[in-house]
Structures are given as structure tokens and as C-alpha cells.
Amino acid sequence: MNIFRFLGDLSHLTSILILIHKIQTSRSCRGISYKTQLLYVIVFVSRYLDLVWTYVSLYNSLMKLFFISSSSYILYLIKIRFRPTLDPSIDTFSLPYLIIPAAILSLIFNYADEKAWLSEVLWSFSIYLESVAILPQLFLLQRTGEAETITTHYLFALGAYRALYIPNWIYRYATESFVDPIAIISGLIQTALYADFFYIYFTKVIRGQKFELPA
């Protein structure tokens, strides 16, 4: 564990708490993509189910439990509790375009060996799927052209999590000679998807302006 990864994990955790707070206080899931949230549940379940047979540390296990349960809870809030506030007509990104390529890639590029095939394929599937899981949300943002400030804080914390993993990998390469090409390449792509969002967040939201996309 190093400071970058720890801050990244905290940022990830914070983003989820912000999202839950936003939905509960506004009693609405307006501006939130159900499809992105569904993808995160798939990502967390396929990656963190190893919680049952792998023990790394208490921190690791608790975080995995948190991510699985909180993402499921968010899905419940969106799909059941505040379902009337859901507007499927703007959340139109097609999920098979993301899930199928991630599944095919995971069958080709993975760390499977004789001992572990399924768990390794599931792990790489979750990494590939996570790298693009934000796309339905960004697509929704693009369609509406604006976002509530709280939603942009959520997205910023989520993007910061992935961005912080980059110095973590550089640090691990320098200190442990540890390189995980699947995680690194996917992570770089995932972070790059936030570039546009980060730009508007820093130039507008931080200065107290509303998040609006240029026409």
C-alpha cells in the first residue's frame, strides 16, 4: 500500500458516498445513469467475489464488501425507491456494446493458468468493463448538456480515484518492480475518458459556475 493508492481508494469510497447523499437528499436520481450503476455492480461482483476465497488484508476485505454492498444499494435506490424519478429516455447507451467486447477481451487477455481459469477471466473482465463503465453516464451528461454540481463532484471523485492509481503504478514499478499490464492499460484508458469532464470541472465548477457543456 502506498499513499497514492490509499488516496485513490478513499476518493472512490467518497464518490459513492456523495452519490448516495445526492440521491437521498434530493430524493431523486435525476442526472444519474442507471446503466453505469448497473455496470459497476457487475464489475464489483465479478472482481470482488474472490473475497470468499482470497484474503489479502482486513482493509482489502472491508473495502470489497463496501463496494459490493454500496453499489447494490445504489441500484436499489435508483430502480426501486426513487424509480419514478428515473428517465430512461436519456439513458440510452447500449450496454452490449460494452459488455460483449469486455467479455471477449477477457477471454483473450488474462492471467489464467491451470489452477485458476474462471476467477482470472472474471477478474480481467471486471477490469475491462470498469474502464468503460462510466460511458453511459458521460453520454447522458452529453445529452442533457448540464449537470447538478453534486453530480459533478461525484464524477470528479470517481475520476480522481483512477487518476491516483497511475502514480501508484509508477511507484510500485520503482519500488517493487511490479507491473500489471492489464490493470495499467485499462486504467490509463479509463482515466483518459475523464479528460473532457476534468477540463470543464476545473475551468467551471471549481470557480463556482454551473457545469454546462459548450453548445
Partner: peptide, 10 residues
């Protein structure tokens, strides 16, 4: 060695 310690990241 790769498989042994990669799973510590979330």
C-alpha cells in the same frame, strides 16, 4: 510471481 501479488489492488 505475477498472480501472487496483483490481487492486493482494489
Amino acid at each position: 510471481p505475477h498472480n501472487e501479488h496483483k490481487k492486493d489492488e482494489l
